[in-house]
Structure formats: structure tokens, C-alpha cells
Design a protein around this nucleic acid. Structure first.
Lengths: 120, 120
DNA sequence: TCTTAGGCATAGCAACCTTAGGTATCTATT
DNA sequence: AATAGATACCTAAGGTTGCTATGCCTAAGA
């Protein structure tokens, strides 16, 4: 029994997430304007009713990568004695979201064609 | 312009495929009973109207991996002077397909919740 | 003859996720 | 007061796994 499964519920196999993480991040930032890392993990958990849990070891490197590419910018803010690093889309990030979303859409359609030939 | 894009059409970003390749292979084998490698690449291309193209460098290692796990068995057959290696699901492979398919289904639902909050 | 299609395979590379740890603050419970 | 859990950031090591490039071979067609 894996540690992260202590709630005895079925979770999404993290391997499936490979390739979709950036899209998820960008979409959430597009929707909410700005978010900090921890907030993103919580939002994903909330939306998917716990099915998808972003690990920090995946999230933070991804955020840094996207920032490095000029897709995101950051701003540090102190909340009490805590520091939060807020991320938001740059202009090129805005374009990136559109592309990523349509790419993901195409991908899902194609996968459906293979996996659910009757429906699709 | 990447080599594999010489037909000047939009293709699925191969990165999205990460994590889904095994499921695709297993589903096709489940549906067709037995298939050989090249046949799988063609079938995927056909079903998805060219959107998804499995590279051989991805497919063959994946097939060998699945065989190594006991999920697939193989049988060589000579067609004329050509050799074909046919793959089919083992019993444990049959169970694996069911699990993989429902996992993929859950995953797509969850992704939809994030990316298309209005629809889902 | 040269190219394209069919058919298999591997080595090296790169991406990136998981695991596992580290630091620190705040709140609630014991 | 001590402990635990949530909040909040981060990184290193290791492993999985797809892609690129390449190799070998046969068959068919221009």
C-alpha cells in the first residue's frame, strides 16, 4: 500500500499525468489570474475530488521551467511571516495556453477514437 | 520543420502520449486478438487520421517491456520471406487492459474537470 | 537503380516524474 | 510545552520512458 494512498481511495496513476502537467498549470493560472504553488496543488485536488494530486517535486520544477521559458512571471509576497510566490501568465504565456488547450483537446479526441471506438 | 512533419499537418505533440502508450497497445491487442508491431503503428495512424504516429523507437521497447512483464506473449511467423512477430495478451494481460482502460477513463474525466469546467 | 513500403531492433539522449529529504511558520491538540 | 498537521517553499538522486538516429533485411514500383 503506497503511502499516498492512506485514504483507501482510487487515485489517478501519476504516470498518466506526464505531458499534461504544464497544461493544467497554465489553465489554472489563466482562469485565476495569479496563484502560488501550494494553492495550485490544492485547487487541483479540490477540482478533481482528490483524484489528481500534484506532488511538489513535480510542480515546483515545472513552475520554474515555465518561468525560465518566459511563460510565467513571479512576484513574492509576504503574508504575515510567510512568503508566497505568486505566478501569473506573461503575454507569451497567454498564447501558450490557447495552444496547449487545443492540443490537449485533440489528444483526448484521438485517444477516445482508439479506446472508445463506439462512442467516438 | 521536424522531419516527421513533412506532410504539413498538425500532429499530436508526442509528449502528451507519455503514459498512454501502454494503454493504447493493450486496447488494440484486446480488440484484434493479435497484431504485429508495424501493424499497430499503422492501425493507430489509421484510427486517428494521422494525428497520432507511434515511432518505432517508442513502440518496440514498449512491446518488449510488456512482454517482459508477462502481459504479452509473442509468436514469430514467416510471411513469404518476411518475419512477423505477433503479440497477444496473456491472461494477466486481460486483467491489465481492464484496469488500464478504467484508469484512462478516470484520468480523462479529471482532466476535463480542470480544462473544461463548464462542460464537465 | 533508387525510392518507398514493410518489418524488426537497439543505443544514446533528454525530459520529467517520484521519492525522499530539507527549511520554516502557524494552529490545534495533548 | 511538546507534538502533529497544515501551510509554503525548495532540491537531489534515481528511474521510467519516449524520441532520434541508425542499422539490418525484403519486396515492389518508378
Amino acid at each position: 500500500m503506497p503511502k499516498n494512498n492512506r485514504y483507501f481511495r482510487i487515485m489517478i496513476d501519476p504516470k498518466l499525468l506526464r505531458g499534461s502537467l504544464d497544461t493544467i498549470i497554465l489553465k489554472l493560472l489563466d482562469e485565476h489570474g495569479e496563484m502560488y504553488g501550494y494553492e495550485i496543488t490544492q485547487k487541483v485536488k479540490e477540482i478533481t475530488a482528490g483524484e489528481i494530486k500534484l506532488t511538489e517535486g513535480a510542480l515546483y520544477p515545472a513552475l520554474h521551467r515555465l518561468e525560465g521559458k518566459g511563460i510565467l512571471t513571479t512576484e513574492m509576497r509576504s503574508i504575515g511571516n510567510r512568503m508566497r510566490k505568486y505566478y501569473r501568465l506573461t503575454e507569451s504565456g497567454q498564447e501558450e495556453v490557447v495552444q496547449k488547450l487545443s492540443a490537449m483537446d485533440e489528444f483526448i479526441k484521438s485517444i477516445q477514437l482508439i479506446l472508445n471506438p463506439k462512442i467516438a
